[in-house]
Design a protein around this nucleic acid. Structure first.
Ligand code: MN
Ligand code: MN
Ligand code: MN
Ligand code: MN
Lengths: 225, 225
DNA sequence: ATATATTTTTAGATTAGTCTAAAATTTTGT
DNA sequence: ACAAAATTTTAGACTAATCTAAAAATATAT
């Protein structure tokens, strides 16, 4: 609608390059990593990288991995913005669980209409964060700044607020649901077991719950103001 | 999500075959008509028809045009259902005008998630008609029955209710907006000009407006109960 | 340092959807 | 009824995105 030049597939590559670069603190993304996340083979990724480099969406030196150019980043941020806004819609307006929305948002993120995105954003009350606690870039591509810590990095007996998750798999999210761990809840680590590094946590100042080390590493929190 | 077997393109062909068949009261749709509506060439349509016939979505005898099979019709109705539900969403929830929504709905109609469609339908209050007055098939593919007449077929001085349009172009819809002709308004033809067959119409029992014969032929109305 | 393992790229094919040009079929007009 | 016109199908080619297998480059490990 607004843009005929970029395909669905290209948008996906740029989005994934953005997210992986972010995850690696700005380091280049490798062909194999992209193959894994695009569910294709390395050979297919190489072809696509050549094409994206020709269009000046990525910085690409053969065998050296890729980063996004400013142009590529703008496209990636636009896709991520739509993905996260639609996720808010699905949870806040349609009542989906946070474990059910990702695959639907993977489709909705490619709907191409500036006006639609603008009106959707407005309809949702211009949210800054999606249902997983991930920041939503604004219309200009600016991300709200966040400084989350892993729960596993927080000292004992320090009260923190649950802000996000670093794994989005339905299994993990459903696991959190079962333990009643939700965004915004209050967490205080009481003890870490010597045996298996599992955590005893005081939840909302009321109940003590037990979570594995694996869970604690994937809970993003911030210290209460 | 629910169905890997049918492509975006195939869905479009089936939808268009449905709508054209309906428009021709059940008569076969020709290759050239499809080429026009799919914005492709007749040769491309022939290829696709062979493929859709192989998959048993259409009844196809070379040179004789096509109709949908029951399987093809179910798919078409599912796409049309999504298209019209999303149009309701765009108008009722996001405040778009009825002239702005079709192209966005053309994209949204291919989002594949039974659960999403179900929840969207519910969120919208299970609407039976879209913003153009077109009926919305239910989850089983059943269309609400409608019996609209063209305003041009209504006798003089017979009060009728505006129920739909048989042309969906933004230009036509904006023209109606300017004349304040909206779904649900009351119309009574006072006179048809001998000179150019244009209509004098009493709108909502208050103002007299003038519309061309072309407009009158594309307004769908029903007689007040 | 150099052989071995791993990663990445290239070469050559494949599939879906499209195109133009030519051939086949149907429709129309006298 | 039959020639001319229109429509539809087929033949052959193209592009985007993918694949497997082989070659090239880089990383690793003694
Ligand atoms: Mn997601
Ligand atoms: Mn998310
Ligand atoms: Mn429409
Ligand atoms: Mn409509």
């Amino acid at each position: 609608m607004d843009n005929q030049l970029i395909s669905f597939t290209e948008e996906n590559y740029l989005k994934i390059i953005y997210l992986l670069t972010e995850r690696h603190n700005g380091n280049e993304v490798s062909t194999n990593q992209l193959a894994e996340h695009t569910q294709t083979k390395a050979a297919s990724v190489s072809d696509m990288l050549r094409k994206l480099a020709e269009k000046n969406y990525i910085n690409y030196r053969k065998y050296q991995g890729v980063t996004l150019t400013a142009a590529g980043e703008q496209i990636a941020l636009g896709v991520i913005r739509k993905h996260r806004l639609w996720e808010v819609f699905l949870v806040e307006k349609l009542g989906f669980g946070w474990d059910e929305i990702h695959d639907i948002a993977e489709q909705l993120e490619h709907i191409d209409s500036k006006e639609l995105t603008k009106r959707l954003d407005n309809f949702l009350g211009n949210p800054q964060f999606d249902p997983h606690g991930d920041p939503i870039p604004d219309a200009k591509g600016k991300m709200p700044s966040v400084s989350y810590l892993k729960l596993s990095e927080i000292p004992l007996n320090q009260s923190v607020v649950m802000m996000g998750v670093s794994v989005h798999s339905p299994a993990f999210l459903q696991h959190l649901d079962k333990q009643q761990i939700t965004l915004g809840c209050d967490l205080k680590v009481l003890e870490i077991s010597d045996f298996d590094k599992s955590y005893s946590i005081l939840l909302d100042g009321k109940n003590t719950i037990f979570v594995s080390n694996e869970v604690a590493k994937n809970l993003l929190v911030s210290i209460e103001e």
